[in-house]
Design a protein around this nucleic acid. Structure first.
Lengths: 333, 333
DNA sequence: CTGTTAGCGCGTTCAA
DNA sequence: TTGAACGCGCTAACAG
């Protein structure tokens, strides 16, 4: 388990090939103004010595690292995992590396991580930063080039975000078109941005559709929360139920089954996120999802534009995908 | 969205404070041999100018980057996500950064990614490398310091792995202790290492427990595979069923319910992995899991030992955790 | 077309 | 205790 032997340097190659450093550098960087024979000789000794340029030294002199940093609030969260994957794959295909920083939901760590990783990279992508808007505004300029994911539009950086509002709106329309006129919404954590987006969607739906009623039921974000509110939900008399997410919907489904309430014959239920198991519940869950991996891909695209001097899209909002499955059907008449 | 202004360099600080570069360097690195007053003045101007040492230049001269690379076969795989998270958190708490590389299951990319990222970092952690053993052996020495996760013991690097064999063995024992004497194993992909580990466990169980029968049923790794083999499984007459993983078990559970077969009254079913929804199936699934995040943590520990010159544990094998839930009970007598 | 020189920004000898 | 000089390994001006 000894250390790897010291890598050959450009000096080694130059000396062995009997040329100057610059010549080796030119050859390695494909600079055409080198005698073909000489170039070939240099290339041969480079291969011979197993030489390749030290990326650190290169970065120092070139002022670029071919690396971007990604700061996420929680690597355990599937959404950020998917975003990270999207970024990573896209960046790799552009020849870039990815440095990852997990703030573990410590809001006060975000700034530090961003600043610190930015210094080792050519740019930073902030995923759903938890900090306040004014803090974010103060931070962004010093981070440039920087891209923000899942936040409101910013002046100092391009933003790529998913349309949580639109996603819920589509689900509401789906239920409405099936004839449901009385809906219940199982709310998640009150102060979260994504819950706010959902509430906005509901408000808009109410004012757009005069004969639609939507009652809100305080709930939560997990399986148990969903199953706990079953009786409350049934008491509302709603025929269509919008769960905060798929977990909540699954909990509700389970509790409804226990009570002998049939889905979708008696009530229709929709979830949110389209987690992998949504298609395997009984009945399979109608749900909506934001394309997280594509979010990452688009974030990279914006970053790449900044890096290459092109003008990035200032604000991209990705449309959700609604998967209609067995948990929804026409309202009983 | 303009670029961030050029950061202050050590030269700027030295000039502004009216001292030499070396003095600033000493102060910044806490070298005690500096006049307290002078040090304070330097520190003040450093803060004033918002100075902090350029990590790249530092890395070049110090020969270390405070960064390690992690190469994974597939960032979409929950297991590797968890391992990555474990590494990331542990490394961060030691003041290290993590560079991530996703080979996207392209075996021929693994070597390149490892070598390339290694050059930008102080070491590399190879997660479940897909390459053949002889290729791995040839690669490891040049990567040192390097740690391998989820492979057999190696000469050239410490290995941290989960005990897949032991995990299945525990499940078998669990069923055996409940009185089951005829079991069925739903096999996954034939040539995979983790499937091989499971088969080994079965073979050992068969020879250790004389009155135990285990029949193997070719299956697959997903929900549909599990539901497709339901009839075949029932035909074996087994009372205890070991699914390759939780998805398979869930598919089977679903198909058994359709056929009116009661779980666990008629047959007991166990899964593998303990995915988040295993506890929410009906009945909740008895399953075993390898502690992926801890695997990452241990991998970091080994890497950190190599980095600090301590002797790492050459081979660590982590015990699985068996979660007994409602899908298993005493065999019908 | 090739070699020499000067940095990139820093840590670290070596004298003073 | 401090500063001057060197080098980490490389690229890019500038000569020749």
């Amino acid at each position: 388990m000894a250390d790897a032997p010291r890598k050959a340097t450009i000096t080694d190659v130059a000396r062995t090939a009997g040329v100057s450093l610059s010549t080796v550098s030119r050859v390695m960087n494909g600079n055409a103004t080198v005698d073909p024979q000489l170039a070939e000789r240099v290339r041969a000794t480079a291969v011979d010595l197993g030489y390749s340029a030290n990326p650190l030294a290169r970065s120092l002199v070139l002022g670029r690292t071919q690396t971007v940093a990604v700061v996420v609030p929680d690597l355990a969260n599937p959404t950020f995992q998917a975003i990270l994957r999207g970024i990573s794959r896209a960046a790799a295909s552009s020849g870039y590396h990815v440095l990852i920083a997990d703030s573990a939901e410590q809001v006060d760590e975000e700034r530090l991580l961003a600043v610190e990783t930015r210094r080792r990279t050519d740019g930073v992508i902030l995923c759903a930063p938890r900090m306040e808007q004014d803090q974010l505004e103060a931070l962004l300029p010093g981070l440039s080039p920087v891209v923000v994911v899942n936040r409101a539009r910013q002046d100092a950086a391009p933003v790529v975000t998913a349309d949580y509002r639109g996603a819920l709106a589509e689900l509401v329309e789906h239920l409405y078109s099936l004839g449901h006129r009385r809906l219940a919404f199982l709310a998640g954590v009150a102060r979260s941005a994504s819950n706010a987006a959902r509430l906005t969607a509901l408000a808009q739906a109410r004012s757009a559709l005069g004969d639609l009623e939507i009652v809100e039921v305080a709930c939560g974000v997990d399986f148990d929360s969903g199953s706990a509110v079953a009786d409350t939900v049934l008491a509302t008399g709603a025929t269509g139920i919008l769960a905060f997410n798929d977990l909540v919907a699954m909990g509700l489904l389970s509790a409804l089954a226990d009570r002998g309430v049939r889905v979708p014959e008696d009530v229709s239920v929709v979830g949110f996120d389209d987690i992998p198991f949504a298609r395997y519940t009984s009945p399979p869950l109608t749900t909506a999802a934001v394309p997280a991996a594509e979010l990452g891909e688009r974030a990279w695209r914006a970053m790449h534009a900044l890096l290459t001097g092109t003008e990035p899209e200032a604000f991209a909002i990705l449309a959700p995908h609604v998967a209609v499955r067995g948990s929804t059907s026409a309202a009983a008449s």
